[in-house]
């Protein structure tokens, strides 16, 4: 129960999950420190969403352990839910309700007093005040995603999961989401975000973990990952490897899976 002494925000050990014959996670180990932005990078089908679903108590693992804020996701799910919030891959807003009503609903379900005040603050923070009384169904993609994230922030959860938060967004909306994530981290919130966009990880993350075929094959800061490749052997032009090259080199060839 003593979360103060918990050294990590998220601690995953030997996590395994299969769907029938398909092994999605084959022993994932991962640590996320408090206040850190960790980008979980991987191709489609690498198991990113499965890992996030286990961490956010939506799915039970087959083996291994997952602690979130020191609470076991398997046995202390309710405590985990009090600490986290999840913004899933697909926008989870109620289209029939207005933006404000969506936020008030979240505040009431988090048992907060002054639900409407919390809603008001978040509408303002996410530049949705003008649209606050419109049905969420009428929102643009970027506005929906902003509302979606705003709904996740009600009650100031300490740990936030963002599953592919910018998939399907236009570049402008994408930048807005990035801004939001940076501000969250500045306030000390721990953020675990999954993405298949390499520049997103490069832009936002303190640390990057690469999930490939069900295991974390690399985990480190951008510079550490870049150091994994031999310095560019250049004769005419000096070239730093981009993260994209690092990623493709790491996951591309099967014989390089176990470095």
């Amino acid at each position: 129960m003593n979360t103060e002494s918990a050294p990590t925000a998220i601690s995953v050990r030997g996590l395994k999950k299969s769907y029938k014959d398909l092994q999605v996670l084959r022993g994932v180990d991962l640590e996320v420190n408090p206040g850190e932005i960790l980008a979980l990078l991987g191709s489609n089908g690498a198991g990113k969403t499965t890992l996030v679903r286990i961490l956010s108590t939506l799915l039970a693992a087959d083996a291994g352990s997952a602690l979130v804020a020191g609470f076991d996701t398997a046995t202390q799910a309710h405590r985990v839910r009090e600490t986290i919030s999840l913004t899933g891959q697909f926008t989870a807003i109620d289209p029939v309700l207005s933006g404000r009503e969506n936020l008030v609903l979240m505040a009431q379900l988090r048992h907060l007093k002054n639900a409407s005040q919390h809603a008001e603050e978040l509408l303002e923070r996410f530049a949705l005040s003008d649209a606050g009384d419109r049905k969420a169904a009428t929102y643009s993609g970027g506005m929906s995603r902003r509302l979606d994230i705003a709904m996740s922030l009600i009650g100031n959860p300490r740990i936030i999961f963002l599953d592919e938060p910018t998939t399907g967004l236009d570049p402008q909306a994408r930048l807005e989401v990035w801004d939001t994530v940076r501000r969250l981290a500045a306030d000390g919130t721990t953020v675990l975000l999954t993405t298949q966009y390499l520049d997103e990880a490069e832009q936002l993350a303190d640390r990057i973990a690469i999930l490939h075929r069900g295991t974390i094959i690399q985990n480190g800061t951008l510079d550490q990952l870049k150091d994994l490749l031999p310095p560019a052997h250049v004769e005419y032009v000096k070239k730093q490897p981009s993260l994209e090259e690092v990623f493709l080199a790491l996951v591309g060839a099967p014989d390089q899976e176990q470095p």
């Binding site: 956010s56 309710h78 986290i84 919030s85 899933g88 697909f90 807003i93 109620d94």
Partner: peptide
């Protein structure tokens, strides 16, 4: 379908 069900499931309700 809409994902709000999963949001509810991830909340302490």
């Amino acid at each position: 379908q809409g994902g709000i069900f999963e949001r509810f499931q991830s909340m302490p309700i």
